[in-house]
């Protein structure tokens, strides 16, 4: 039997200095997983509307509570972030945006854009929904 040859191994994630693209990659996966769980809310909402006024009232009471609003706000951001970050990935899939500057600009645009768009959606949401 030959003894085991000690070949150099590729370093794993934790040895690298954190970069924006790296953090966003982790966040893309994390928001994806959060949205996965959040689809229960979508299914519940649709089912509640289809069930009738009583079921719908229960759903509205949850969504309208401070906890429900917090979850919904987090869900909005996760959705917008995953969408913008995903568009960034599609641009990369087409072979564009790999330059050092472009890569950073795309990532910053998606990160800042997700916060701005989320706030805009909630401002519009309250402006429209508040009057009814």
């Amino acid at each position: 039997m030959t003894s085991r040859i000690e070949r150099p191994l590729s370093p794993h994630l934790q040895v690298y200095r954190w970069t924006l693209t790296m953090a966003m990659s982790v966040l893309h996966r994390a928001t994806g997983a959060a949205l996965y769980a959040g689809t229960i809310l979508m299914a519940w909402g649709l089912l509640a509307a289809a069930a009738g006024p009583t079921g719908f009232a229960t759903f509205k009471a949850f969504i309208g509570s401070w906890f429900g609003l917090l979850v919904l706000f987090g869900y909005t951001w996760a959705l917008v972030y995953h969408l913008l970050s995903g568009i960034r990935h599609l641009i990369w899939d087409l072979g564009y945006g790999f330059g050092a500057q472009e890569r950073f600009a795309l990532s910053r645009l998606a990160a800042i854009g997700s916060v701005v768009l989320t706030l805009a959606i909630w401002v519009v949401g309250f402006a429209v929904g508040g009057v009814r």
Binding site: P53, H89, G129, V131
Partner: peptide, 26 residues
Amino acid sequence: RVTAVGIGLLAIPVLVIIVMLLGRNH
């Protein structure tokens, strides 16, 4: 990728629908 593009295209219409629903009764 196909589903991602589909969701991307549907994002704005779905968002409009959700905003339309806000504050409505049953």
